[in-house]
Design a binder for these strands. Structure first.
Lengths: 405, 405
DNA sequence: GTGAAAGCGCTAACAT
DNA sequence: ATGTTAGCGCTTTCAC
């Protein structure tokens, strides 16, 4: 692991305002505006505020018991809310615990109960909108259930392999939630043998507990909606498949194809393009579509984040939305409303909540149906980026061709 | 806690394709497109895929020792990488551990070492862009350090109070990271007595370990930049202060005021407006600014997310950016580039990395400087939403006043 | 209703 | 270099 950067020797200012707390005065380090390098500073004015506290031992149940004048067993029973404790003893224990700021050690109790009081979640990244929303719902439910939340993320294939090889969650969580992973059979098998319940989030895992929205039906509905506006040439922009982390591409593309088939529209592979993160890739993908002999009049993006990139590219190219090209997203990202993006909303927070609830159920009740599926609804939100197909499909106008009058 | 929703009785389709794995065929539940209610489904085709595995006991070190024909101590030493193990014994232990898929129980080892191998983080929400980026950097560093990451989030003031009352992280983590909280003195005091190192992230905590970007200098620089474009009436749009969760409003506003003062520009309270999440609040805030007798020619938004809302409102009002109004953000959110938003970039992922590194240092070395500050740089990225001040500050044009020629 | 004692799985000190 | 032993802080019998 990389160590901390070296401590830079701060140029001592002429006068150090003693004991000041105003943030503007505290920030007296020689930090250039717009500097390019990072550094570590000793904080002059801060150092006086606090002398190091001696590392103190956390109080244990024995401490509480002694103070309350009861046995450790009684403390344990009281704190777990068992009814076999007299009111008198309970009061004494609660008072003692409060006075000592006693907090139970999950490590110790888990050793004997076999429960860790923790739920682990595995996600491809912690930085995406969807994962963030799922975690929000999840943490809310787990907090109410008295469970802690541990997160594992794997950034690339090597880390992914390492995770499935070692399964660090194995003995250190009561359940594992896997968010939005396109798993191989081997990985499924590995998790099947994990020894704790596994809940698959945002994906349909055959024969295993899953929570997801009906991507296929939603994408079918979205494509039908575009068809209803008169569009016949509908493009699909998907995330780059190389990451291997998302399974929504597959399902949403499937729904798209179904809706085309319903209307006897051909599935044209030229209309399906992939983009990876970053504006360049999206610009290329969009360019590819617009250069087709028979270009699309509508674009269905796999996620709102992709749709927003597409909008951005279209705007800077001067292509009118929705007059010349309609754009449909998926997610109802916060920014979708602000950008007036038509999208298929999915209840991401609710997906998190349902996952947490399901995990909690499976933990508490080992006889619960471990193959239960929770399917959450989606709904289309028509906004301003979609409109009727242009009356006469115009030849794709290229700048070099259009002469000024 | 709310229970799981009732299992809906699925209408059995005419034919259940047996053993199929194609996702489209699996999704045979009566899920209406765009349905409004959620439900739980039993998955017909899935149930056949897997018979419940009996709950199996996790192998312990004793199991590994027995299989390897050595003592438990040797297993422990081997797995911890101590050098006092013969190659022969090491090989046998590693083989046995692998065969049994042994995973060490942190619970048990932490009981004796006093270390949990876990770092806890407290965040106001898990759904914001900044927190997500910080968590990305953090998890990367912690993974390399062999530490697990536990997250606590508090959604409202009641939960916040409960957290500081109980301090659930107390005995269950080796360090606590507090992200972007505006803490009271009482809360600081409570954390000072936590018994484990605390790192304050995205905030300057006097006398305590902190990692942050220099908000004051950055905001000063951003405001100077707008001044350099000729702007004299510069508005500041901040997040609603009622949440009490962010401390960036205070510091960034301070830098803004400093830059005004440098140029002897007056600080006009009418130019500082607050907005909460949601487009309506932003629309009102922007409206307030545009209705001023002497309206601003530039807007500095506390975050990119706010700036994007502002842009959206301006666009739908037909107010040209930057011709009539310049907009400056803060963060360099992913969407900022797509939207061509001028912004002050902060290295959010790097903030997470540095926090994790600092926490790791403080855990491993109790004598390390617990008041160390890491200050990371910011830089301004000029893009298309900022431009020179309009030549002659025009009277604010109101639709009712402008007559058609 | 309460306490004493055993032991969860591991590490650390000691003995060999 | 390896095995033996004594706990870490808690829960859980089992007596009382």
């Amino acid at each position: 692991m990389a160590g901390l950067p070296q401590i830079a020797q701060p140029t001592r200012p002429d006068r150090i305002p003693p004991g000041t707390r105003d943030p503007s005065e505290l920030l007296i380090f020689p930090v250039d505006d717009n500097a390019v390098t990072d550094r570590v500073h000793a904080c002059y004015t801060c150092a006086t505020f606090r002398t190091m506290l001696p590392a103190q031992r956390h109080p244990t149940m024995a401490d509480v018991a002694e103070r309350a004048g009861v046995s450790v067993s009684t403390v344990s029973r009281t704190l777990r809310g068992l009814s076999t404790v007299s009111d008198e003893a309970r009061a004494k224990v609660e008072a003692a615990a409060r006075e000592l700021s006693f907090v139970i050690s999950r490590q110790a109790s888990s050793l004997v109960t076999g429960k860790t009081g923790t739920v682990a979640v595995l996600a491809p990244t912690l930085g995406s909108w969807f994962v963030g929303q799922v975690l929000r719902g999840l943490s809310e439910v787990l907090r109410d259930a008295g469970l802690d939340l541990k997160v594992y993320s794997v950034a690339d294939l090597a880390e992914r392999a390492a995770f499935f090889d070692q399964l660090p969650a194995r003995r250190n969580a009561d359940a594992l939630l896997v968010i939005s992973f396109d798993l191989t059979e081997e990985e499924f098998a590995r998790l099947d043998g994990l020894g704790v319940p596994v809940v698959y989030v945002s994906q349909h895992a055959p024969g295993r507990a899953s929570v997801y929205v009906e991507d296929v039906a939603a994408a079918r509905g979205g494509t039908r909606y575009l068809r209803g506006l008169g569009h016949r040439r509908i493009a699909f922009v998907r995330a780059a498949p190389d990451s291997g982390f998302t399974c929504s591409s597959r399902t949403r593309l499937f729904g798209y194809r179904e809706a085309l088939a319903e209307a006897a529209l051909p599935y044209d592979e030229d209309l399906v393009v992939a983009t990876s993160r970053g504006r360049r890739a999206t610009a290329e993908a969009v360019g590819q579509l617009l250069c087709l002999a028979d270009p699309p009049t509508a674009v269905f993006a796999e996620t709102d984040e992709i749709a927003i990139e597409v909008l951005s590219v279209l705007r800077s190219s001067g292509i009118a939305v929705p007059d010349r090209l309609s754009v449909l997203g998926f997610d109802d990202h916060d920014h979708a409303e602000w950008l007036d993006l038509t999208t298929i909303a999915q209840p991401a927070v609710e997906v998190g909540r349902a996952s947490g609830t399901l995990a909690h159920t499976l933990i508490d009740d080992p006889t619960a149906d471990a193959t239960r599926h929770v399917v959450l609804p989606t709904h289309l939100i028509p906004r301003g980026t979609t409109g009727p197909v242009p009356q006469s499909a115009p030849e794709p106008k290229r700048e070099s061709e259009s002469a000024q009058p």
